[in-house]
Each structure stands twice: as C-alpha cells, then as structure tokens.
Write a protein that binds this DNA or RNA. Structure first.
Length: 690
RNA sequence: GCCCGCGUAGCUCAGUGGAUUAGAGCGUUCGCCUCCGGAGCGAAAGGUCGCAGGUUCGACCCCUGCCGCGGGUACCA
C-alpha cells in the first residue's frame, strides 16, 4: 500500500463521519504535510470547512476544535495510525505507526504497486491524451528556447504516463511556411543552388557544422538580404516578392521549388530529431502542414465552419472580402479588437484557420485522416511515423500503425505569446463541435527563454543601446540571435567529461563519455524544468553549466550514492536486513526496537525523509492537474537534499546494530526507488557512477 | 486604450485552500575527509513579500486602485 492510498482511506473515513455525524457533504478535502515533523505526518484542515458547512446547514456554530475532537476516534481506529492530535485552531494531525509503515513501504514501492495494478485509485478509462510539442520550423537548428518547449512537453508526457494515462506525442512540422520559404530563397538567390547542388553541399558538411547549422546562418543572411544588407533598413518589397513566389510554389506542390523545399525541410527535421534524441525526447507522429493542405483538411474545416455559422464573410468595412470569426466578447470600437480573420481577402488561409483544421483532426472531429509512412525507427523498437499524401505508403511499412488522432484532451505546448491565437483556435473548435467544448483544447503555455545582455556579450553579439538597457533580449532565429541546442549540449558534455575523468579515472573512454552525456542532459533538463512555466528564463551560461547546488547532477549524485551503498553491502547483509523487517508484524519486541530507531530527534529526521519519498504519487497527480512540471523538479531536489543529509548523518554499511542497520538500509532502498522514478519522469537517468 | 503575466534576500527563483521563526540555489563569511565518493554536509549574515486601501478573528496569499517591467492585441506565425 502506498501513502497515497492510505490517505484516500482516511479521507473516505472523514467524509463518512461528516455525513453520519453532521449530515454534511465535504467537497474539498485536502491532506497537508504539517510544517514541522513534530506536528505529525499528515494534517487535515478539514474542520474549518466543516464549521462553515455545519453553520450553513443547521445554523449551529461549532468550533473547529470541537469538530476535530469528534472525528478523532474514527481516525484512531486505523491500524496504521498511532495517534491523532488536535492542534492549532482545529487541525487534525495524524501520527502514523512508523514501524508498520516502514515495512509497508519497503515491501512494495508505490511504483511497483502501480505496475502490478494493486492501487485502489487505478484508472480504468482509456481515454487518450495528446501532447504536441517541439514543432520547430524546419529551416534551421534548434536553439535553447526550442529546447524549453521540447523538455517541458516531454516531461509532461512522462508525468501523464506515470499517472497511468494513454498519451500520443506529436511534433508539428510547418514545412510549407514562410520560414522554410526564406531559406529556400537563400539557396536559390543567394547561393544560386539547385537541388543537386544542395545535396552535394549536404554531403560535404562535417558533423561539427551540419545542415541545420548551415541553414541557421543562411537564414540570417536572408534576413539581411531582405533589408538590402542593413538591419535598420525597411524590407525591400521586390525581394519580399521572391519569398511570396517561393511560398506559393511550395504550397502548390509538384514543382521543382516544392521539391527543393521538401528536401531542405526534411533534412532540418532529421537534424532537429537528432538533437532531441540526445535529450531523450521522442515522438509518435510528425504531422506536416503540407498534408493538411493537400489532403484538404482545411477545405473540410472551412465547410464545417460555414455550415455551423462560426465564420461569416464580410462584405464591407476594412475586412471586406475576408471570412472572419466574430468575437462575441469584444468590447468595441477599437480597431485592435475586431473580429479574427480566418481567410484573407485574397482567398488564402491564415495560420489560425489551418490550426483549427489540425485541432479538429486531433480531437477526431474532422472526418478526414492523414496517410502515414514510417519516418524513423528508434533504437528500442519505437517507431516514428510521418504524415504523407501517399495512400499506399502505410502498407509498405511492415509495422502496425497506431490509431493516430482522436484525443480526448489535446495539450498544445506553445509559448505564451501565442495565447491569443490559441484561444481563437479553442473557441473556434468549440463552436464547430460544441459537444467537445473549449476545455478539450489546452494551451500548455510557457514563457520564452531570453538572453541576458551579459550572455549576449559572451556570445560575441554587439547590442544596440536600446537592447543593452533591457532586462533581457529575446532570441531570434531571424537575426541569428540565440544559443544553439547542440552547442550548449556539447559544452555541457565536455564540462561533465572533465569532472568524470577527475573522479573516475579507471573508467573506459566509452563509459566516461556515456556518463558525461547523462550528467550533461540532467543539467540541461533540470535547468529548464526548475523554473515554473510562466517565468521568463533569462539565460545565464554560468547557471546553466553548473553541476552544483540545485541542479540535475546534484539530484543524480544522490541517486548514484544510493546505488553505491547497495554495491558495498554484501548480499547476505541485505538479505538479513530484508528478512528482519518482514518479521516486524509477528514480533512485537522487534517492532518496538524498530520504533525506537525511528523515534526521537534523529529518528524523526529519518522518518520525515521516508514520508517525503512517499509523496511522489501525490506530486505527480498535482503536476498532471496543474500541468506544471517544475513542481516535480523541485520535489525531486528536496528528496535528493534530504537524502544527502541522511547520508551524511548515518553510516549505513558499517552500522553495528542489526535492527538499526536494517532500518537504514530499508530507508535507502525506499529513497533509491522513489528518487530514481522521479528522475526518470524528468527524463534524467542515473549512471552507475559519476 | 484593452487583455494576460510578473514585481518575495545582493543575484536567480520557489511558495501559500489562513498554523508561531517567509523558503531554496548562487554569491559572501566561518566550520567539516578517524570518509558508505566533498558534484557533499553544517553554521552565520542577508527580507517593511512593489505601494495604498478593503474583506477577515487572522492576508505574502483573496478583492479594488495605483506604480514599475514584460508580452499580446496584424489580411505574421
């Protein structure tokens, strides 16, 4: 049994008691951890709520403490509960029987219990959650801002999976957009290259300057080109015309420019996927904009919107000739708050329009489907699919295709600057299919990663006076202003390698590199996860490259220490310790001795570490509900910190007293299981040594 | 103008469905290898939780107003 399910049982008892004794129904019932371990293992502030409810129901004024006194015996009847104390203005504080619980937690960790299906809260519904993340324009290398998106999305996916959800992971590929067109303009007009020449160029590039890096630089050149070489110039309309021409050709398809664009986009996608693979981030499906166009997703959505009266064609005013979505709540006359344009007067669709079509498909409400082919086979049998217009491609795959689309809840990991268009999409979808509603479309928003003026200087970027005065500077692919993901990972890996070589000189070169890689990824992922989503990260090299303090490697290190303890312990010692604890329930003298180890100041400290580890399930549930992975990162760090202290305070391997040693080993075992599980959800692995 | 987010220690950030001393990390100062690995542990210094009202027995947290910063409000995405 886990702490989580024990909590559920206690809550049920309180609910039942409130019903029987006071005739009221408790809606919100939370279990807190008391501010200090001396105040108990669990606290229910429910009596404040009950006092209000009772007053409402009967008019009778009852003091929260008096209510608590009445509930006390009910909770004390639990076997695992040692005693109940009423504290403060009316808190119910629960003190568990530590020896009994320790044994319970040791025999099965909550994760093993979940795997074995003996958790009472197990979900039976198999509704599907869908998470779209990464979705980088395939025209250049990924930068650190993109990595924040991917790491947040990937971690949220892991959180959902840990909570027992079925999840489908999508990465949207805008292969027919302006950004791809810009790079194509660069190849055609700046480099005078055709497809053959680009392929030859691609072949000749070395791993330290791959295709996506080449495009990164070319893209910034195109940006200058549009302004005739001077960033402060206006855009040159004639040159912009080149972009428009290319864009039309790409959207049209079946021509040489479209073919060239497809090569460029696909190669960038491959490079970006390689970057993400380094971070342990994978996908189920790459959904491409070209298929949304060519498989007529938009036309279908357009029909649906017209049919349902969601959009209307304006015949006069400044939007004459456009199809717009009226904004019911718009407050008026201001020109910046008018209806949202879905189809432009020249007949082309806006991004918002295309996104509504895609969102409808995601929710299984479009009535059309993509065709699919295999894009990549990941190492452990996982297959990545991509959309295609070729209806026969799937049969050639030789693998069974999962049923893509049709999610019950769709999370779109997109930065907060797009919250307005995202709101339009959600509302549009809800208007088309009211039975789905706007809540099925969740904008998982986050703030950008920006550069501090100092970080810009370290990158050798010269700043304008205006920029220098800002607290941070927005990254810009267009300006080539940003920290490339692979550069940063490389830097982290070489930093980690130095440390590994210092500490583990006996390791083989391969092992050293593998370990350095794990440490680097831990550092990067944790760095991006420790900030809450709505905090702008002002990127700082020193902080991002650190392995000390509140970092991924610190958490990893604590887990590595638990492993090395078990390596040091002989099999026999371990077996003895295990069997000693299993005998607790039948041996009251032994149980007393275990209780003694866990009592007093030192015992309480040990015990609070155990209690902390048991909160993992609840933290996961919270993160799932709030869609805030930072909570899990913070929690993981607190477990690592508590264990580091425990490790420092107690000698585990050399402990002479067998009962005490068994307890210390049991605690270490529990920490190892929970900490390793928590890290795995953050996408951080625990190396053998580091 | 309107909408959204933010304002907490020198710096970077957590936090709160009301519990007495508001928490981390970095930085600063001082300690800790008779060691299961110091990517560690302990201690100290450092805060009128932007300002002003309001609700309450009680507000860093809820409400209102103001100030400051950022983002959005395009026939861009």
């Amino acid at each position: 049994m886990s702490l989580f399910s024990l909590q559920q049982q206690l809550k049920e008892e309180i609910r039942g008691a409130a019903r029987e004794m006071f005739g009221v129904e408790v809606q919100q019932l939370t279990a807190d951890t008391p501010p200090k371990p001396e105040l108990g293992d669990l606290a229910f502030p429910v009596c404040f709520e009950l006092a209000k409810l009772i007053k409402q129901a009967t008019g009778e004024k009852m003091a929260p403490r008096a209510i608590a006194e009445k509930l006390k015996p009910r909770l004390e009847s639990f076997d695992q509960v040692a005693r109940i104390e009423i504290a403060g203005a009316g808190y119910i504080n629960v003190f568990f029987d530590r020896a009994k619980l320790l044994q319970l937690f040791t025999t099965k960790t909550s994760f093993e219990a979940k795997r074995d299906g003996d958790l009472t809260d197990q979900k039976t519904d198999q509704s599907k959650k869908m998470v779209e993340h990464t979705s980088i324009n395939p025209n250049k290398a990924a930068h650190i801002g993109h990595v924040r998106n991917a790491v947040l999305g990937d971690t949220f996916v892991r959180i959902l999976q840990a909570a027992g959800d079925r999840v489908e992971v999508q990465n949207y590929i805008d292969n027919t957009g302006v950004q791809v067109a810009d790079v194509v303009v660069g190849f055609l007009h700046l480099e005078a290259m055709n497809l053959e020449k680009i392929k030859a160029l691609d072949e000749s590039l070395t791993p330290d300057y791959p295709f996506d890096y080449y495009c990164w630089d070319l893209y910034t050149e195109v940006g200058r080109f549009y302004r005739d070489g001077n960033p402060s110039n206006d855009l040159n309309p004639e040159k912009l015309g080149m972009r428009t021409k290319v864009l039309h050709a790409i959207e049209e398809g079946n021509n040489r420019i479209a073919e060239l664009a497809d090569y460029v986009a696909t190669r960038n996608v491959e490079c970006i996927l390689n970057t993400m693979e380094r971070l342990g981030i994978r996908y189920d499906l790459l959904a491409r904009e070209s298929e949304i166009l060519h498989l007529h997703f938009w036309e279908r959505a357009f029909e649906l919107m017209k049919m349902k009266g969601v959009i209307r064609k304006e015949t006069e005013g400044k939007h004459a000739g456009c199809w717009v979505m009226p904004f019911e709540s718009h407050t008026g006359t201001d020109e910046h708050e008018s209806d949202k344009i879905i189809v432009r007067s020249n007949g082309t669709v806006t991004y918002t329009g295309k996104d509504i079509a895609y969102q409808l498909w995601k929710l299984g409400k479009l009535g059309l489907n993509f065709h699919y082919r295999v894009f990549r086979n990941y190492q452990d049998d996982h297959t990545l699919w991509i959309t295609t217009t070729d209806a026969k491609a799937e049969a050639k795959a030789g693998v069974e295709r999962p049923p893509f689309g049709g999610g019950d809840t769709v999370y779109n990991v997109i930065d907060s600057r797009q919250s307005y268009p995202q709101e339009i999409v959600a509302r549009g979808v809800a208007a088309i299919v009211p039975e789905v509603g706007a809540d099925a479309s969740v904008h998982f928003s986050y703030e950008m990663v920006a550069l501090s003026p100092a970080a810009c200087e370290e990158l050798g970027i010269t700043l304008s006076e205006e920029d220098r005065a800002k607290p941070y500077i927005e990254m810009s692919g267009r300006k080539g202003l940003g920290v490339k993901a692979d550069d940063l990972i490389n830097q982290l890996e070489s930093g980690a390698l130095l440390e590994v070589e210092k500490r583990n000189p006996e390791l083989s070169e391969t092992d050293k590199k593998a370990t350095a890689h794990e440490v680097a990824i831990a550092a990067l992922r944790y760095f991006l996860l420790k900030f809450t989503r709505n905090t702008v990260i002002a990127f700082d090299f020193k902080e991002a490259l650190s392995f000390e303090g509140e970092t991924g490697p610190y958490c990893q290190y604590a887990a590595v220490r638990t492993n090395s303890i078990f390596r040091k312990l002989g099999d026999e010692t371990l077996r003895d310790a295990d069997s000693l604890l299993t005998m607790i329930s039948g041996d009251s003298a032994l149980q007393l001795r275990v209780s003694e180890v866990l009592s007093g100041e030192s015992g309480t400290e040990i015990w609070s570490l155990v209690m902390l580890t048991q909160q993992l399930d609840e933290v996961i549930a919270q993160c799932r509900k709030s869609a805030e992975p930072a909570n899990l990162a913070k929690y993981t760090f607190s477990v690592a910190r508590a264990f580091s202290r425990f490790y420092h305070d107690h000698r585990i391997v050399t402990e002479k007293d067998d009962v005490r040693r068994a307890v210390l080993i049991a605690v270490t075992k529990i920490v190892r299981a929970q900490l390793t599980a928590a890290l795995a959800i953050l996408g951080i692995r625990v190396p053998e040594q580091m």
